[in-house]
Amino acid sequence: MRISSSILYLGLIPGLWLITCTLILGLPQLRLETFLISPSDAGRAGGLLSIIISTLLILTITLVISVPLASATALAMTYFRRYFLKLSRLLSLSLDVLSAIPSVIFGLFGNVLFVEKLNLGHSILSGGLTLAFMILPTMVRTLESSYHEIEKGYAKTTEALGINFSTFIYQIVFPLGLPALIFATILGMTRAMAETAALLFTSGYSDRMPESVLDSGRSMSVHIYELAMNVPGGDKNAYLTAALLVFILLTINSAITYFGYHLNKRLGIL
């Protein structure tokens, strides 16, 4: 028993170590101007304003594309699951396969399709679109399971009332699935924020303030990578960015748990 409990604690050490060293090394660098000015001297000095703006822009594009696409796909899957089971199996297989593809491959895909073929260049738009396709399978999976539960619960009742399937989908399943949609959106958002590899060759490295979504922009995670790998003496600001990123993700995560609990309670008694 002693061996297994020491293995248990050993397993927790890396996580604890990582989070303490990130916060301890990162947070002391935090100043007000971190949020007010853009990085200078390749990121060794200055703040993070342009980085934060780029990150927000990339996230916005990602969610604007992926949320409607994911919820429509999940609703379609609910339909297929009822009337064309074979087709829904095929869809779910392709989602499983898609979610197993490494993010760096999505980066290559985005580089060819958006940067080169669609001629969007290394831009925030390319990065956002790439991430949208990357988080799609996760979001569809999350949504589809809760849509299916709702469908099972109300299918008989609505059919007995002579309600068409389209009305059922749009006016009953979708509104009742809103909590799940929020949950899936937040989940996708955390995955998109944590992603680096897919952005390296799609949204580029530029740390200047983006003027439009067609400008190159550097996300927080790419900033950490650049400072740590390519800028001697950039460690301190890398840790600052990491601490901020970790802080945001922890906040979102706690919010998920909190809202997840309350929204689940609301589900069904809307």
Partner: peptide, 24 residues
């Protein structure tokens, strides 16, 4: 029409319960 063993109102307001099937 069918009425089930468990009362099965839709999880909306009373009014909406009528409006949804009526709108068809």
């Amino acid at each position: 029409a069918t009425i089930f063993q468990e009362p099965s109102p839709l999880p909306f307001s009373i009014k909406k319960n009528f409006e949804l099937p009526l709108s068809e």
